[in-house]
Design a protein around this nucleic acid. Structure first.
Length: 906
RNA sequence: GGACGAUUAGCUCAGUUGGUUAGAGCAUCUCGUUUACACCGAGAGGGUCGUAGGUUCGAAUCCUACAUCGUCCACCA
């Protein structure tokens, strides 16, 4: 902060370098990011929990956007007097981090098995510790006003305890069970995947028509037919109706297989032969059909990606190899009817793109359809849908509520166990002496083999048990880890101290006000948070889920390394300043829609930053220190004063309402237009003419800086520190938000806008004439104005008109004859004549007037036609009809005046 | 197959409950260094609001089809 009494003028141009780090340090040192240190009573909370970036990641433009938006809301509400907390954190991102470290090991020629489980996890932790600092620094660089004293990490001790607590509660409520069901298996990751972690890739393949007992069955995966236990047909298919319910046997060279014929609506009669081979153990759809029909399952592919013993002579072969061999054998036995080319949608792992092998496996699941007594007997699914339907949680934009409900309605039991090493280890221990693993059920849909609460020898605990509480026997912990999203689902409350709430944060800040994140993780994360939180805490995690879009390049493409179109937020922040980057990510950004960004756009906002700087430079430079420190609402003296103060009030009101309503682009535009087009281009120019406006100017600047602060914190704070701040801890960041009734009380506004616009339009009309007749810029010319009923107004504002239009003599009278050889214009019934003598190009002027007259006539005609329409006059609201009449009257008077002027030109 | 979004000036987009001669920024053209700013100022040109119907006194705005582009979900064996 500059010395109050010996204030240095602001530098000629704003240079963000150096300023930003210094300002951020001062903020952080002040402790004001922490709501505990905020001044005043703050009964209402405003809390946003930061979606945690990967601890091992680096900041990309998408992060920059969400940090900008979340910081914007937090700063706004902090200034509005809320108990504002933005809580930062990082994510251990189990699968992603595993993959990353495995890749690093690969460059050293090692695999995770060379290190062993313990060694590998150590290595992962080292890697995270070393890279976590990077992302923290980068978050700061964006100006994020988050409370670092409350920073958390999804894999730290407290969060780990919450995960265990959560697992234990869900297990005891019967919501978590260990069962033998179909899962998505990635042979490369050697782990299960959730349904939404599976992606699809179209690939050409063959559709094989196999002779299959009495049928012919079409398939793209012939080798899985070794695991078939049924075929399905459509119940209405006349070709096969008679066979429904019967059984037959086939032999594909590994012995006889018993096959039942079942009927299911899902079967497409048109596709292939209308008969589908059902492989319960290796297809989710088949598994579902098998569940309905209690079919036996036969697992022919193992977790190692090889055929199992049940595949007979193919046992031990890789799947691809087995398919080839099986096809050869089928050909030899003449069991292939034909083959067709076919585009197959191959399911692949979203992390490593390896083809997924659906298979049945013993895993841990969350039962989404079991009613929970403690929650009114509702199931997890029902609770999650209800809170969105009753508005406890709103999703913005609203259309995503439909997506959410659809997803939630179709949710199947969620497989939460993963076989990767790095992650929250499942808090289950098995007793070596009294635990007997249940046999896998023989039939699909038979849950008798599931292991739930109460199973002998299974210990679920939040602590580290050392022996079996039942028999004292030796125990060993489950080796599987939890799906990352299990812990992410607890994010809003695990970060706030659930379940014990040691420092009262949970009570103080939960449910949080807003979760701001991308629409692409609506199902992954948003849905899971709602599900987990509603169950655990009994309240929603957030009142609003604001879903932003993706940032794309200027051609609308995703940014990617291979396209070389990545905009690195830190690079451009360095080049143009963080504020410019933030503005370019805010303005033009609407929820749920992708946005395009380019360096040109950022450059434009850099220019704006500098404009604001120079506006401040001008105002502060022309104002005495004592004056600009006065804080009252100033008294408007002139028309321009009343106009600008009235406009400022309107801007305060609309900006406030917009941000309250989670609308961030429009207030940015409103402010930019006001600051640049109204304040700088008009009012400051007038201030130079009228003079003596120190109070008003400093009031306007102070207000504008406050309004801009959530959008561009650095430059505004810097200006504040160099001017208004009176002591070390006087930060714009915690200044009170302006009230929209600031100047209204002082009589601003009232009709000023209408009057001022007339003056403005007269000036523009004269400038227009100067430009069309190519009058030299510095040349002072004379004008004659017939003001009609606006005469008094114009006479009062004559000095402004004279200065802004660069005039010599200005004659303003009520009316008169149109002078000869003058360029002319009509605005609001006011006639303006610029007698230019030789300077006026009569042909040019005639043409210009004729065009205008033509326009005016067409316009008047269309209005007349409208008013002649009886339907319109009788049915439209009276004020609309009156408005049209007024427009017509003005248009007609304009026509008369234009005709006069045209005549004068000859 | 289902759902959703987009389609407005050369480009990027506003246009909130139907009533403006359809707006802004960039780009383009013309002029200009007036002591806050050339990272600037002044002025101008440029659009039958994707197409076809419909509702209405009145449609960029509401309804119905269709087209093009894009996204998500499901997945057909």
């Amino acid at each position: 902060m500059a010395n109050v009494d010996a204030r240095e003028p602001l530098a000629k141009a704003y240079d963000p370098k150096g300023v930003e780090d210094r300002i951020y340090e001062a903020w952080e040192k002040s402790g004001l990011f922490n709501p505990d240190n905020l001044p005043g009573e703050r009964p209402e909370p405003f809390c946003v929990i930061m979606p945690p970036p990967n601890a091992t990641g680096t900041l990309h433009i998408g992060h920059a956007m969400f940090l900008t938006l979340e910081d914007l809301m937090t700063r706004f509400h902090r200034m509005r007097g809320k108990d504002a907390l933005w809580l930062p954190g990082t994510d251990h991102a189990a699968i992603a981090t595993n993959t990353k470290v495995e890749k690093i090991l690969a460059t050293e020629g090692k695999t995770k098995y060379d290190l062993g489980r313990e060694g590998f996890i150590e290595r992962v932790k080292e890697y995270i510790a070393q890279s976590q600092g990077t992302i923290r620094r980068q978050i700061r660089k964006m100006g994020s006003s988050c409370d670092w004293s409350r920073e958390t990490y999804t894999f730290d001790d407290e969060r780990t305890r919450v995960v265990r607590e959560m697992f234990t509660r869900m297990f005891n409520d019967g919501l978590i069970y260990r069962g033998y069901r179909i899962v998505n298996w990635c042979p490369r990751c050697e782990s299960t995947l959730a349904d939404d972690e599976v992606e699809y890739r179209e690939e050409p393949s063959k559709l094989v028509f196999m002779r299959y007992g009495p049928f012919i069955v079409a398939t793209t995966r012939p080798e899985t037919k070794l695991g078939d236990t049924a075929v399905a047909v459509h119940p209405d298919d006349d070709r096969y109706k008679d066979r429904i319910g019967t059984e037959f046997e086939v032999d594909f060279g590994i012995g006889s297989q018993k096959i039942r014929v079942i009927a299911d609506e899902e079967v497409d009669m048109e596709f292939g032969t209308g008969v589908v081979g059902i492989t319960p153990a290796h297809s989710a759809v088949d598994f579902a059909m098998a569940e309905k029909n209690q079919l036996p399952m036969k697992k022919v592919i193992g977790e190692d990606g090889k055929m199992t013993e049940l595949a007979g002579k193919y046992a031990g072969m890789e799947v691809v190899e087995a398919r080839k061999k099986f096809m050869e054998d089928l050909r030899v036995s003449d069991l292939i009817e034909k083959e067709e080319d076919f585009n197959h949608n191959l399911s692949i792992c979203y992390r490593c793109s390896t083809p997924i092998e659906p298979l049945t496996s013993r895993q841990w699941f969350i039962d989404v359809n079991r009613s929970v007594e403690a929650r009114g007997g509702k199931t997890l699914k029902e609770m999650s849908i209800d809170v969105v339907e009753d508005g406890s949680t709103r999703i913005l934009p609203e259309r995503f509520e439909k997506v959410y409900k659809h997803w939630m309605t179709n949710l199947r039991d969620w497989c939460i166990s993963r076989q990767i090493w790095f992650g929250h280890r499942i808090p289950v221990w098995y007793c070596k002496s009294c635990y007997v693993e249940n046999d896998a059920p023989e039939k699909v849909g038979d849950s008798s083999g599931f292991e739930r609460a109460g199973q002998a020898g299974v210990i679920v605990s939040t602590d580290e048990p050392t022996e079996c509480p039942a028999c004292g026997g030796e125990i060993e912990q489950e080796t599987d880890t939890l799906d990352t999203w299990f812990s992410s689902g607890t994010w809003t409350f695990s970060t706030l101290g659930w379940p014990d709430d040691p420092n009262g944060d949970l009570k103080r800040f939960h449910p949080t006000q807003c979760l701001e994140t991308g629409y692409d993780i609506l199902p992954f994360w948003v849905a899971r948070m709602i599900l987990m939180t509603t169950y655990a805490v009994g309240e929603v995690p957030f009142e609003v889920a604001y879903l932003h879009g993706l940032v794309r390049d200027e051609q609308g493409r995703k940014m990617s390394k291979s396209l070389e179109n990545i905009i690195d937020p830190l690079d451009v922040a360095e080049k143009y300043g963080t504020d410019a980057v933030r503005l370019s990510l805010t303005i033009g950004n609407t929820p749920g829609n992708d946005m395009k960004i380019s360096e040109d756009k950022i450059e434009y906002y850099r220019n704006f930053t500098n404009k604001l700087w120079n506006i401040s430079r001008f105002i502060l430079g022309s104002t005495e220190v004592q004056k600009y420190r006065s804080t009252g609402v100033p008294e408007p003296v002139t028309l321009a004063d009343r106009w600008i103060l009235g406009r400022l009030d309107e801007v305060v009101e609309s900006v406030t309402n917009d941000i309250e309503g989670y609308n961030f682009s429009r207030p940015g535009e409103t402010l930019r237009d006001f600051t640049w087009n109204e304040l700088a281009d008009w009012y400051l120019e007038i201030a130079k003419v009228e003079g003596d406006k120190q109070d008003i100017l400093s009031y306007i600047l102070r207000t504008v800086l406050k309004l801009w602060h959530p959008f561009m914190p650095f430059v505004t704070e810097e200006i504040w520190r160099q001017s208004f701040a009176e002591e070390e801890n006087d930060f714009l960041m915690v200044a009170g938000w302006p009230s929209s009734r600031g100047a209204k009380g002082a009589g601003a506004g009232e009709g000023a806008e209408e009057s001022f616009n007339i003056v403005k339009d007269v000036v523009v009309a004269i400038r227009n004439i100067r430009a069309t007749h190519k009058v030299a810029a510095g040349k002072r010319i004379d004008v004659v104005i017939y003001g009609g009923e606006k005469t008094k107004l114009l006479q009062e504002q004559a000095e402004i008109i004279r200065a802004l239009a660069k005039l010599g003599n200005v004659t303003i009278v009520e009316s008169g004859e149109a002078p000869e050889n003058a360029a002319a214009a009509v605005q609001h019934g006011v006639q303006v004549f610029v007698p230019l003598g030789d300077l006026v190009d009569l042909d040019e002027e005639r043409k210009r007037l004729e065009d205008e007259l033509d326009n005016a006539k067409k316009y008047a005609d269309s209005l007349r036609k409208k008013l002649d329409n009886e339907q319109f006059v009788s049915k439209a609201p009276p004020q609309v009809v009156d408005a049209e009449r007024a427009k017509l009257a003005e248009a007609e008077s304009r026509i008369v005046k234009l005709e006069e002027q045209l005549k004068a030109v000859g």
